[in-house]
């Protein structure tokens, strides 16, 4: 029995060495190792042996079977390799598939919307052509307030008979292009009441001459949270979460007093410069800090303008320039590129 097994093995190996292609290999494998193959047939006979012999021969047979199976596998690999023996330059680049591009401001807006959505904020949009009332008055910036100097405003002339009726209030022109996204604070409060958690990304306008650092059209993101027990420390905590999302877990937040008529206390906020980690570099003008935006506790007059009882509710608001953040993030040195429509710029994102 043992000899027969060895002989069969040699026989099979001999035939295996003569195999030239895949189908011959498969045929040989079926003929020998297959369900009705020669080796299989022989293995069946082991059952007829005595117990002691069965042990020895059984092990041998099994070893042979494994060995042959391995040789068949190796032979198969060799044959497959032969089939594909033409040279492949594995360093060739991928085939270009057509793709489009989101505007860099949209990318940043999406990133932040996602963060705020996960914190339970809703994303709203609002009108870009606004009224003096929502852009200034309702935000505690009355006419002749020096704070109006802070924002050079584009005013819109009235035209068309349709508007004369609405304009009977006598004002010269109370239509303007919103100078910030803050008017949506009051609109959102009027529409949804309290409690409220919203962000409003959107386009804003300031009447200033354009150059590499100034643009009359830019994007802001406004945030507003109103509830019964919202404190200044909560504002700070949320802003910390924002700058960490933007620039990494180690980022620090710094706030300093700044006057915005629609918040009290008002604060400016800065984050440690993500380029130099606060050591000081060209981007942060060697200060180690990057100015991000403005914030504060919603002024009671603004809550009241939004028809929310300032005695029962309080909240915070913040805003920052999306365009500016995009410039920082991608190292864009000319703000005018954003509205240039130039594909050489847009295709980089």
């Amino acid at each position: 029995m043992k000899d027969n097994l060895q002989k069969l093995k040699q026989d099979i190996l001999q035939k295996l060495s003569e195999v030239k292609d895949g189908s011959a290999l498969r045929n040989l494998e079926i003929k020998t190792l297959g369900r009705k193959g020669e080796l299989t047939e022989m293995l069946r006979k082991i059952n007829t042996l005595g117990l002691e012999e069965k042990k020895i021969v059984g092990k041998l047979a099994n070893d042979i079977k494994l060995e042959l199976a391995g040789k068949f596998r190796a032979a198969a690999e060799v044959l497959e390799g032969e089939r594909k023996n033409e040279f492949i330059d594995l360093t060739l680049p991928g085939e270009k598939t057509k793709r489009g591009h989101l505007h860099p401001v949209t990318i940043l807006e999406n990133e932040l919307s996602e963060l705020f959505s996960s914190l339970g904020f809703s994303v709203l949009s609002g009108p870009e052509l606004e009224s003096d009332y929502y852009n200034f008055e309702a935000l505690n910036i009355p006419a002749d307030h020096p704070a109006r100097d802070m924002q050079d405003t584009f005013y819109v002339a009235r035209t068309g008979a349709e508007l004369t009726r609405a304009d009977a209030d006598g004002a010269d022109s109370n239509l303007l292009l919103r100078t910030h996204t803050s008017p949506m604070q009051v609109r959102a409060m009027e529409k949804y009441g309290a409690p409220l958690r919203v962000i409003i990304p959107g386009r804003c306008f300031r009447s200033e001459a354009t150059d590499a650092r100034h643009e009359h059209t830019f994007y802001q993101l406004e945030g507003l949270m109103v509830d019964k027990n919202i404190s200044f420390t909560d504002l700070k905590g949320v802003l910390e979460a924002v700058v960490r999302r933007l620039y990494g877990a180690e980022t620090k937040l710094r706030m300093r007093p700044k006057f915005y008529p629609f918040v009290e206390p008002g604060a400016n906020f800065e984050a440690t410069c993500f380029l130099c980690q606060g050591r000081g570099c060209r981007v942060c003008k060697n200060s180690g800090w990057l100015e991000i935006g403005g914030s504060g506790m919603v002024h009671p007059k603004v809550l009241a303008a939004g028809r929310i009882d300032p005695k029962a509710y309080q909240g915070f608001a913040f805003g920052f320039g999306l365009t500016r953040l995009a410039m920082l993030k991608y190292g864009i040195n000319d703000i005018r590129l954003f509205n240039s429509g130039d594909l050489r710029f847009l295709e980089q994102f």
């Binding site: 339970g120 809703s122 409690p195 409220l196 909560d234 700070k236 905590g237 937040l253």
Partner: peptide
């Protein structure tokens, strides 16, 4: 002043 995160009752968000 140490920052904290708001403790509030969650409410379904308004949808635009």
């Amino acid at each position: 002043i140490q920052g904290s995160l708001p403790q509030i009752t969650i409410a379904p968000p308004v949808l635009d």
